[in-house]
Design a protein around this nucleic acid. Structure first.
Lengths: 231, 231
DNA sequence: AACCGCTTGTGAACGCAGGAACAAAGTCGC
DNA sequence: GCGACTTTGTTCCTGCGTTCACAAGCGGTT
C-alpha cells in the first residue's frame, strides 16, 4: 500500500483537484484543513476524499486534520510534479493558440517546448516566447527535447496522422482535442477532450430532469419564472 | 425500457461519440454498419456498444446491422438534438474566443446567442457574427433568449460569481473551463473541463507504467530507444 | 493523569459499469 | 422451402468505484 499498488484513475483525477484547492489554501495562509472542509471545497464526499488520500499512506493527524503544505507536497510528489513535463502542441488555430497562451500549465509543471502547425501562414508567429514551427521539424524537436506529452488541437481530418507521427517519435501520452477517436499503439495513453460531447451530455441531463421544471432550486413552483425579477 | 428509465451518464457520453461516427459514415454514403465496425471506430467494445444502443429500443436488424441514417436520427432524437440549444458564453479571452469561433458546436445543435466579457477592451469586438457584450446585459439577454446553457471561460477568481449570475437568471446547465469547483443550486447541472487535470492524469498514468519502459508496444527491450530510428 | 470530543483511516455493503457468452432472428444460398 | 451463417439483443458474471458506518488515535481540558 505504499507506492505502487496502483492508484485508480478516478482517484488521480481528484487528487489533481485536491492539489489545486490545497495550493489556494496554502496561499491563504491556512495551516490545517479537515477532510470535510477540503471535500466541500473540492465538491466530493468526505469519506471518498479520505479514501483517496489513504492511497498515499497516512498523511493526516487524527483529531486535527491535514497539514496543508505537507499534504500539498505529498500529492504533488505522487503526481510527479517535482519534475517539469515537456509537451509539444500541434495545431495552432484558435484553440491551439489559447492553449499555448494559457498560464495554468506552467504553474503545474507542464511546459510547452514546441508549437507546430502545417499552415505556412501560421509558421513563424510567436506565442509567448515560442515560435510556431513547421511540421517537418516535429521529429527533430521531439528527439532533442525528449518531450513525452503531445497535445493535438488540429482539425479532425489530420489528427490521426499527427497522432501516428507523435507516437512514432516516442511520445507516450496524448491529449486530443480533435473530435475523432484516435487509435494509438499499446503503451501510449490517450485522453480525449470533446467539447461537443460535453455539451450534449449536459443538454441530455437537463432534458432528462427537465420535464419537472418545478425543481428544488427555485422556490417558486407555479410561474414559469421568465427571469424577470432577478435583474 | 422505452424512453424514461434513465440512461446512464457514461452511455450518454458514448452515444454522442457514436452519433459523430455515424454522421461521418452517412456522409460517406454508407448504408449499414455492424456493431463491431461501429465499436471499432468509436474505440469501445462491441458488446458494450450494443448494450448502449439497447437503451433506446431495438434499432438494428439481426444478421445485417444498423441502418446508418436511421440510427443517427434515433440517437440525435434521444440526445435532444432536433431542437437547437441556445448557449451564452462568458469570458472572451483566448479560450473563449476559440470556443466562440469553433464551428463544431453549430453542427451539433448548439448555438451561441450571446458573448460576454467584463473587460471594456473586449466589449464591442465581433467574433463570427456576434458582438461581445458587457456583463450588464447578461440578464437581459438570458431573459430574451431563454438560453439554458452557460459556458464559463473566465479567470478562476470570477467564475463562481458568473455561475451565480447565470443560475439566478434561469440557466440550468453550465460548462465550466475555469479551474475552480463551482457550487450551484440543486437542479443545475455543472460539468467541469479542467485542462491541467487532464494533463496531470496523463502524466501520472505514464509515470505509473513508465518504470517499465520495456512495455508491450515497443519490441526493443534493452535500449532506451532515443527515438532515433523511427523518423 | 484521566476523560472527552474531534478527526482520521479502514472495513463492509451497495450499486454500477464493463466484458464475455448465449439465444433469438433475419438473410443468403442451395 | 430449408439449412446455415451472420448479427443483434440479452443475460450473467466479474471487478471497480462510491458510500455508509465504525474503530483507532490525537489534542485539549480538568
Amino acid at each position: 500500500m505504499q507506492s505502487r499498488p496502483r492508484i485508480p484513475e478516478a482517484t488521480v483525477a481528484r487528487l489533481a483537484v485536491y492539489l489545486r484547492v490545497l495550493t489556494g489554501l496554502a496561499d491563504s495562509g491556512r495551516g490545517t484543513v479537515s477532510s470535510g472542509e477540503l471535500a466541500s471545497a473540492a465538491g466530493v464526499n468526505p469519506a471518498g476524499l479520505r479514501k483517496d488520500l489513504s492511497h498515499l499512506g497516512p498523511c493526516g493527524t487524527r483529531g486535527v486534520g491535514y497539514e496543508v503544505s505537507t499534504l500539498r507536497d505529498r500529492i504533488a510528489g505522487v503526481l510527479g510534479m517535482e519534475t517539469a513535463h515537456a509537451c509539444v502542441l500541434v495545431g495552432i488555430g484558435n484553440l491551439g493558440s489559447a492553449l499555448a497562451g494559457y498560464g495554468g500549465f506552467g504553474n503545474r509543471g507542464f511546459e510547452f517546448v514546441g508549437l507546430f502547425d502545417a499552415s505556412p501562414a501560421r509558421v513563424g508567429q510567436r506565442i509567448g516566447d515560442l515560435p510556431v514551427r513547421p511540421m517537418e521539424e516535429l521529429d527533430e524537436v521531439l528527439a532533442e527535447t525528449r518531450a513525452t506529452i503531445g497535445v493535438i488541437a488540429t482539425p479532425a481530418e489530420v489528427a490521426q496522422r499527427v497522432c501516428d507521427q507523435l507516437t512514432a517519435a516516442g511520445v507516450r501520452s496524448i491529449l486530443n482535442f480533435a473530435p475523432v477517436t484516435l487509435s494509438a499503439p499499446a503503451g501510449v495513453g490517450v485522453r480525449q477532450v470533446d467539447l461537443s460531447v460535453e455539451l450534449q451530455v449536459l443538454a441530455f441531463l437537463d432534458k432528462q430532469r427537465g420535464p419537472a421544471p418545478a425543481a428544488l432550486g427555485t422556490a417558486l413552483g407555479t410561474a414559469l419564472a421568465p427571469a424577470g425579477g432577478m435583474a
